[in-house]
């Protein structure tokens, strides 16, 4: 494997891991709200969360560009206040992949929360535990497999994200060029096919490892619960 290839794989992994890290907490919150609470504008929240799933990725990337770009109203504020720029760097890739992966993670978590028997939570309350502790000791352990499933889906989505990334942060080797973008570029140039094929195989391998890891974690989490209880 050449140095360039290793760079591409490491960047892709970094982006995918950060994508999952930044998506999980808000996805847990939104998933819980959608599963458990009735509030004004719930349908709107639901639609907004799912929009990236149904819109062309290029459109999502364009929307990110005009809002989070240097001249976008959020982007300019971020740059002026914090000096943060998302354009043309890996943080922008994380944002693009996170937006695309978010609906998948929320769906998995929401379904897991809906499957929890709320009678168990009520029983825990009658045993004198506060709602926060009930969430940590009853709800969270019971939905852990769902969270892991969501994280795996999100990770895989981030590894494969193409349209939104290339539109939002362009295709810059070493900065924003993840695996799919690199494969695309290689197929545009003569004699690039051999390296493209290697990257394709690496992609498949990473996806396989991600799924295997999540299965292993799911099993471990169940065992962990068993031994702790």
């Amino acid at each position: 494997m050449s140095e360039a290839e290793i760079g591409i794989v490491l960047l892709s992994l970094k982006v995918a891991i950060w994508c999952v890290i930044v998506s999980l907490p808000p996805a847990l919150l939104i998933g819980w709200l959608l599963a458990r609470r009735e509030f004004y504008g719930k349908t709107l929240v639901n639609v907004l969360v799912h929009l990236p799933l149904v819109m062309p990725p290029v459109v999502v990337g364009y929307i990110l560009l005009v809002t989070l770009g240097k001249r976008g109203f959020i982007g300019s504020w971020l740059f002026d206040t914090f000096g943060i720029s998302l354009i043309f760097n890996w943080k922008g890739v994380v944002v693009a992949t996170a937006v695309m992966a978010f609906p998948l993670i929320v769906r998995a978590i929401r379904q897991a929360i809906e499957a929890v028997d709320q009678n168990l939570e009520t029983a825990a309350l009658t045993l004198g535990r506060s709602p926060a502790l009930v969430f940590l000791t009853i709800t969270l352990p019971l939905i852990l497999p769902g969270i892991l499933a969501g994280a795996t889906l999100g990770f895989a989505r981030a590894l494969g994200e193409f349209g939104a990334t290339i539109t939002f942060v362009s295709n810059i080797p070493g900065e924003t060029q993840t695996l799919p973008l690199a494969i695309y570029s290689l197929l545009q140039v003569p004699n690039g096919e051999e390296m493209a094929l290697r990257l394709v195989i690496l992609s498949a391998l990473l996806a396989f490892l991600a799924i295997a890891l999540s299965e292993w974690l799911a099993r471990r989490s169940i065992k962990g619960l068993e031994s702790r209880a």
Binding site: L120, A123, L125, T126, L127, G128, L142, A229
Partner: peptide, 29 residues
């Protein structure tokens, strides 16, 4: 609120926590 009433409940269905052992369930409260 429920958790501060100090009233024990035994429900029609047992409502045991599936992810805790019997000991864990007994100690929960």
């Amino acid at each position: 609120p429920v958790q501060e009433r100090n009233i024990g409940f035994v429900f029609q269905e047992h409502r045991l926590f599936p992810h805790y052992s019997v000991r864990g369930n007994l100690n929960y409260g």
